[in-house]
Design a protein around this nucleic acid. Sequence first.
DNA 1: ATTTCATATGAAATATAATTCATTTGAAGT
DNA 2: ACTTCAAATGAATTATATTTCATATGAAAT
Lengths: 106, 106
Amino acid sequence: MKKGLTEICYKFFNNLSNPTRLATLEKLMEKPMSVNELADALGQEQSMVSHNLKPLLQCNFVFIEKQGKKSIYSANQETVGTLFKAVEVHAEKYCPTGGKCLKEEN
Amino acid sequence: MKKGLTEICYKFFNNLSNPTRLATLEKLMEKPMSVNELADALGQEQSMVSHNLKPLLQCNFVFIEKQGKKSIYSANQETVGTLFKAVEVHAEKYCPTGGKCLKEEN
DNA sequence: ATTTCATATGAAATATAATTCATTTGAAGT
DNA sequence: ACTTCAAATGAATTATATTTCATATGAAAT
């Protein structure tokens, strides 16, 4: 394993370990959206979406393109797609009950 | 994207977004170890290592094999290798300065 | 059955992160 | 210049997660 990767991993996974940010990425994987469109789609407040977009942008999990007053965000399909796929593969093989292994009772 | 994946992603990434657990995985990727060996290798207390191994085990990021008094833990090479590799690839392409984009000042 | 070694657990204390609400910035139109 | 719309920011509150320390469990040896 490459030196220093653990720190980068921490920053990255930390970034991804948040329901709002994951839901944001999920939406943006479908199509690019403005902040307010995202807020609508997620049923969240604009400021919250903004706050959560910031770290995603910083790590280049999303990209931004300004159009007049609007900021159009899009997902980094390559990275996000790869990571989500890896989780899906793992879940199918190691959590065959569909997440039963993730419940509190264990 | 598969339905319900966001929740699983959350649990998984949450699990991985911890320096102790990442360092643990890094060590276990090298070779299987007992809890005390891990604690030594990491310079952490045994109870802390135990606490952190629990969620890793629950998500099958690590496996356990009991040998007498000892618990030998090993990494899920497939999953952990894939995820770390994905981060490495992303970092090389999108964080060419080696994490400068991850600093606070931005 | 008692002692020792290895690990796991519980609960309190501490540290971190997320959310909300009020406010600010900035771009574009009037 | 003023108003409006869109997004970003700051700071306080609230919620979560981590760490520590004391203790419990469990296996094996004496």
